[in-house]
Design a protein around this nucleic acid. Structure first.
Length: 396
DNA sequence: AATCGTGACAACCGCAAGCCT
DNA sequence: AAGGCTTGCGGTTGTCACGAT
């Protein structure tokens, strides 16, 4: 693994790009594609290193970049994904169409991180800063499981990111052949059949290109956040079977959480930008308010009564996945990552969804003992679920 | 008007992984 | 298998704009 020689040697310009340089780079790439970044500057007549050109292109000049203020939805997606993935900006960026990892990183560092800190939330752990009580045995066990799940989800997102990159590369080479301007394709969906557990009934599978009619997928589409997912093979006479969707050359086990809201799909419509803002909890230093704000802003009024959790090589019926309380849920209506993110968030405060019927949302400020008791119950449910699956499950 | 502090964002740097020979 | 090259990633720094003093 040799390191690339640094290209900042002689006579190469650094610092801000001028409009003329931008024009040169843009014109060259539009005509020839970027090809080898190393060779590009000389061919394009730029006194820059290839690395600088690549950065300028990917972070600024690319035609598929959306600039300007981040929407509330984007902010929330960033926060949720950050809770899940940490500072893995490229992975986060794959779920924010038209935003670059650099832009997201900057926005996090200059806006979101500070905002969370102001609210008394550790921007690294996404927990309340004074939340030391989570270190009890049960909590740490739960945290360990959560971490394990996060690793899997993280791996999946990595695979997605790789897929996106490959997609872009393919798009590049293809268009290069055609001599057309380079416009990377959006993240593609695998041509998979999806099945959703929807309030006690399996929804019909959808075919082909990922343009699913399953509500969950519809919602995904409404966000423009398509994601390749694992495959759940559906048969009329047999229970669905989880299979592995190969991502790129890597055939890795994937987990798909498929859930839907109990209401009609319109409940999954994201509110317009600006419809909600941070003001209700901007000055708050309370975790519950933060959490509540997050949940509200998700805009999905899922009852989250049901769970569908499939693992490779296993099939567990929806019924058997229910806990004694019948309210374990991975509500996944926003996209592949959302249910998991909700799960993450719910790890710390899940009164609403754990409570009977989920309709006692006013109880969010319950006593500390209830708080942890509910968490305990919730995680016990999760653990039961986990324990019921084969030991060779790839997930745990 | 000059200086200073701060915020926002673009760009750079160094490392690591993957590809190719 | 080993080494060189390219690219991607994440952390950090530089630069500019703007408001406060």
């Amino acid at each position: 693994m040799g390191r690339s020689p640094c290209c900042d040697k002689v006579g190469l310009k650094k610092g801000p790009w001028t409009p003329e340089e931008d024009q040169k780079l843009l014109a060259y790439i539009e005509e020839h594609g970027h090809g080898s970044w190393r060779a590009l500057p000389a061919k394009a007549g730029l006194q820059r290193c290839g690395k600088s050109c690549r950065l300028r292109w990917t972070n600024y000049l690319r035609p598929d970049i959306k600039r300007g203020k981040f929407s509330l939805q984007e902010e929330q997606t960033i926060i949720q994904l950050h809770a899940l993935l940490g500072n893995r900006w490229s992975a986060i960026a794959t779920h924010l169409p038209k935003r670059t990892d650099n832009e997201i990183k900057n926005y996090w560092n200059t806006h979101l991180k500070k905002r969370l800190a102001k609210m008394g939330i550790d921007p690294v752990t996404h927990k309340p800063k004074n939340d030391a009580l989570l270190s009890s045995d049960g909590q740490s066990k739960n945290a360990a499981n959560l971490s394990h799940m996060a690793q899997w989800e993280s791996a999946r997102l990595e695979a997605e990111a790789r897929l996106v990159r490959e997609s872009k590369l393919r798009s590049h080479s293809f268009q290069h052949q055609l001599g057309t301007p380079v416009v990377p394709l959006p993240p593609r969906s695998l041509g998979v059949t999806k099945v959703g557990w929807n309030n006690g009934a399996w929804s019909k599978p959808t075919e082909g290109n990922g343009g699913s009619t399953v509500p969950a997928a519809t919602v995904i589409g409404s966000h423009g956040l398509e994601s390749p997912t694992s495959t759940l093979t559906y048969s009329e006479n047999a229970p669905p079977v989880m299979t592995t969707a190969g991502i790129g050359e890597t055939s890795m086990p994937l987990i798909e959480f498929v859930g839907t809201t109990s209401g009609s799909s319109e409940t999954g419509i994201v509110k317009d930008e600006g419809e909600q803002d941070w003001k209700p909890f901007e000055n708050s230093t309370h975790w519950s308010e933060y959490k509540e704000g997050m949940e509200n802003s998700l805009s999905f009024t899922s009852n989250l009564h049901d769970i569908s959790m499939s693992m490779e090589g296993t099939w567990t019926s929806p019924e058997s996945l229910r806990t004694s309380r019948g309210h374990v849920h991975f509500g996944n209506v926003m996209g592949d990552q959302e249910g998991f993110t909700n799960l993450l968030l719910n790890n710390f405060d899940d009164h609403q969804s754990l409570s009977d019927g989920g309709d006692d949302s006013e109880n969010g400020s319950g006593s500390g003992s209830d708080y942890y008791e509910d968490n305990k119950n919730y995680w016990n449910s999760i653990l039961n679920l986990v324990n019921s699956s084969p030991s060779d499950s790839p997930m745990f």
